[in-house]
């Protein structure tokens, strides 16, 4: 599981290496995590997801959606993604 989420982070989704290295959450300035399922960038520090439209991440605070705890663990594979979520949290904190 650890390897898997590392791979996710390194692949960094549709954003290039440059953006992955440089972008942070606009509000907390904490690292962002790419979520493949929803194609969004998630700031775990404040629990907000920022959409990626057409390969362009949108990090304007008003575009962010507040994540409910349940949302982070989708019903289809609850165990899987919530574990990943916890791990990322651990890493970031």
């Amino acid at each position: 599981m650890v390897r898997m989420s590392k791979a996710l982070l390194q692949k960094a989704g549709p954003l290039g290496k440059t953006l992955t290295e440089i972008l942070v959450c606009p509000l907390s300035k904490q690292p962002l995590r790419y979520c493949e399922e929803t194609n969004s960038l998630i700031s775990d520090a404040i629990g907000v997801s920022f959409p990626i439209k057409n390969g362009i991440p949108s990090l304007v605070p008003t575009d962010g959606k507040i994540l409910e705890e349940e949302d982070t663990s989708k019903p289809e594979d609850t165990a899987n993604s919530s574990a990943r979520y916890d791990e990322n949290r651990g890493r970031n904190s």
């Binding site: 440089i22 972008l23 991440p57």
Partner: peptide, 11 residues
């Protein structure tokens, strides 16, 4: 990137 200068999303 789409971002707001008042909330700069840069490390």
């Amino acid at each position: 990137v789409v971002g707001d200068e008042e909330f700069l999303p840069v490390k």
